[in-house]
Amino acid sequence: MKNVFRFLYELLIGKPEPPMETPLYRSEIFPDVGGVSLLLITLVLVLVYYYVLNHVMRTARFSHWYHWLGMLLINAGIAFGYAIYYCRLHEVTPDSYVYWFAFANAFYSALFFFLFSLLLKWRSYNAARTPF
């Protein structure tokens, strides 16, 4: 799993900077941030969107594509903030790489939100065809 996250982040933003922080990113930050925000938080938000807002709650008010897009952007925002928070928590060197990492995390969280949506939407009463 570590290698997967390392591959994904470095594919987008290259090797961690400064070089002395590389081990910390690869062994802790990438897998932790990726695991929590890309998988866990994104999955929770997808489930909340499809099975709380559009299933358990007896309303179809939130089933439009723009509601779904709103949730995707919220998820991306959380991913962006969580990445910065986690880097600061581990006192990594304040470098522009932190923000590129946060941006990459937001991008992947949106991508994962989209993929999870395709996988999980089908049994939702009111949003089985959202976004399409």
């Binding site: 007896r58 179809a60 008010r61 089933s63 009463y125 089985a128």
Partner: peptide, 13 residues
């Protein structure tokens, strides 16, 4: 109308 949509969605399934 929202009640209609919720029920119609369910019936459609």
């Amino acid at each position: 109308q929202d009640g209609f949509v919720v029920r119609l969605n369910k019936e459609e399934r």
